[in-house]
Write a protein that binds this DNA or RNA. Sequence first.
RNA 1: GUUUCCGUAGCUCAGCAGGAUAGAGCGUCCGCCUCCUAAGCGGAAGGCCCCGGGUUCAAAUCCCGGCGGGAACGCCA
Length: 563
Amino acid sequence: MDHKLELANAIGTQTGIPAAELVDYIEIPPNPEMGDYAFPCFRLAKSLKKAPAAIAAQLKDEVQLPGGIARVEAAGGYLNFFANKDEYTKAVLDAVLSADRYGATQQGENKNVCIEFSSINIAKPVHIGHLSSTAIGNSLCRIYGYLGYNTIAINHLGDWGTQFGKMIVAYQKWGSREMVEKESVRGLVKLYVRFHEEAEKDESLNDEARAWFRKIELGDPDALELFNWFKEISLKEVMQIYELLDVHFDSYAGESFFEDKMKPIIDELGAKGLLKVDNGATLVELEEYGMPPCIILRSDGATLYATRDLAAARYRKATYNFVKSLYVVAYQQNLHFQQFFKVLELLGDDWVKDMEHVNFGMVSMEEGTLSTRHGNVVYLEDVLKAAIDKTLDIIKEKSPDLEDKQSAARAVGVGAVVWGVLYNSRIKDITFSWGKVLNFDGETGPYAQYTHARCCSVLNKAGGYDANAVDYSKLDDPAVAALVKAIAVFPDAIQTAASKNEPYIVARATIDICATFNRFYYDNRIMDDDAAIRNARLAITDAARKVIATGLYLVGLKAPERM
RNA sequence: GUUUCCGUAGCUCAGCAGGAUAGAGCGUCCGCCUCCUAAGCGGAAGGCCCCGGGUUCAAAUCCCGGCGGGAACGCCA
């Protein structure tokens, strides 16, 4: 299917240049009319002491075409090769139709990849700002899983800190069991906001909060009961969202889990002479690496974020022996990760090279920064619900006879929202707008899902086809060539997406298949009267269906058969 | 101030281990359902690829310097 190496060999024998060097030069022309492969002769001009166009013209006559390549043309300094279309189409479609999971590999067999993502804060609402990490992390889990890796999805819960002391104080003063049970996390947030309002007037509340958190740390039964209850409520609520998103975790080991695991690494830092006390704080100096110091202990002796991350990294290495450990966390924390990775390096943990901060841009509102305190937030749950409601309306209008409208609406509504954060490179900032998340036209999740459903619909109506008797010469439409190419490139997209940790590459490769399929669909009646033509068109429709379903899966979307 | 990321069509973004006329969606305008899902398809308009140098046969892509914007920068996470 891939002729690059054979072409490199053929050119190599003519020019005397090693094929290994030439193979990287071979490219795919921007326009299919130019051919399927192109070799730019410019680079050979110097060593061969000839003009590029002359080299191309000469090679055109001399080069021995490998099997599967039908002809060659010289165009300026380019040598353009044309594959034998029928053979190429057959090779690509056979690969899809015969494979269980097209594009899947075993390259990750017996290798563990840790992926930390979502990492929600207990007792705080899950808002749209949490979607990026959750969606990107989930997609990466699926992509690595598809490549054979064993993935460990880690939700590094924010479940520790004086904030819980504050919650307890607020709950005892202004809350009630009924209120919290009824209003759940939103009730807790109200209490939290109230606490900050009151604390502005009355400083002593902060002392009370610290005292209560101290009780949690010491294992006081009353304090622990409330703490665990708040945690339970929060988790219960967030689970519903994860259920909707079809996201699952292997570990919820968060901050509280590492509370008793930091001492050894602090001791080791001290023993290796990396610690320094400055203004009361204990830190690792990183000036010679162009970074501010990494604080390990506050002046009051308390541990910090970095301390916990160090302990967590060690724990994960020991527990999972990962070949890769990813942190899907916003780019605001770039410096933190650079610092904490550097500290591990200084400790001699050479596996730090396998760790990567998979950063992404920030979400803001049209009115400005997201802020729970100022009420400038949009709850993720509300966004998902709105998208589902809108989808349901569309389904009622367009597919009134669809049996299970609810589940289709869930798949498509959620898909539209998730797709929104996975269609561009991670680093881009996002300004939330209802108009945008509720747009289902164009390059969107619903578009991909719609195309998939369309394929399913045709295939269902056809009732089947004979995959072993496909006459590929019947597929002579120009749209077919584009579709076949889009399908052929899909496995490369998965590889690139994994190597860059960029789900959008899969999303876009999927859209390319959808767009070319829809063009094909309009140019050709699949259910043609001619049995051979019909069979071939059904085969390519089925291939498109399979790959689109895979693409949707890899970015975390469902692929309903009807919508 | 220092570090870092970003700057491509009105808007949102692809393209950037250099290569052939710079692409897509949204929005705008025009057209297409007696036929397999119109959440679709076709067409039009719309670009000093932020600016200036440099490297190269070739720069949106690499390097340097500006300008503009985001983010981070010692006891939050």
